[in-house]
């Protein structure tokens, strides 16, 4: 299952991570790959930290849960504390600049950049932090093609916000360079 890439996208409820997970998986499908998306439900999903998990693979995906993520995104401290594991060697960790990473955490690569500030100040809408994050993920991993990612975003976002979201995606690419 070496051709399988597992991602855990986490943050606070309302940061659009469910949508980000769906868009990422749909980009995978546009690239001709297999993808699944799952999320946490119940009290856990309301407020506090929430997560959306995506698996993208060249072959059929059997076991659908993410256990050793190749990439973990955490937009808030609470999400990082809850969803980045100390017990494994994490793959790539992507966090907002304000998130502190426990020194005990092992990882292959850490990308700590101003995701929320970029969304808020550069693009002008904090709500697009999820799209900025997707830009970072694509640039850092190439797990889906940029073309597929852009299409997947435009297929999902409300009409009239296309330009805004494209800008957010490109800012994400820049942040990961």
């Amino acid at each position: 299952m070496s051709n399988q890439f597992e991602l855990r996208l986490s943050g606070a409820g309302g940061q659009g991570l469910l949508l980000a997970g769906i868009v990422l998986a749909e980009a995978g499908i546009l690239d001709g790959k297999f993808a699944t998306q799952t999320q946490s439900y119940g009290p856990e999903a309301r407020g506090g930290a929430s997560k959306s998990e995506v698996i993208i693979s060249d072959s059929e995906i059997d076991y659908p849960e993410v256990r050793t993520p190749n990439l973990t995104l955490a937009l808030t401290q609470e999400a990082a504390d809850k969803y980045i594991s100390k017990d494994i060697i994490n793959g790539i960790i992507v966090v907002d600049e304000r998130v502190e990473i426990d020194p005990a955490i092992k990882y292959e690569k850490l990308i700590r950049v101003p995701i929320i500030k970029t969304a808020k100040n550069k693009i002008g809408k904090a709500i697009v932090a999820n799209i900025v994050s997707l830009g970072i993920i694509v640039e850092a991993t190439n797990i889906v093609s940029k073309e597929a990612m852009e299409s997947a975003i435009l297929n999902r976002v409300p009409k009239g916000t296309e330009k805004l979201n494209r800008m957010a995606l490109e800012s994400g690419y820049e942040l990961a360079k």
């Binding site: 993808a35 998306q37 799952t38 659908p64």
Partner: peptide, 10 residues
């Protein structure tokens, strides 16, 4: 079951 009911797939 909850897994199949809630997971998204193609």
């Amino acid at each position: 079951d909850e897994v199949i009911g809630h997971m998204r797939e193609k």
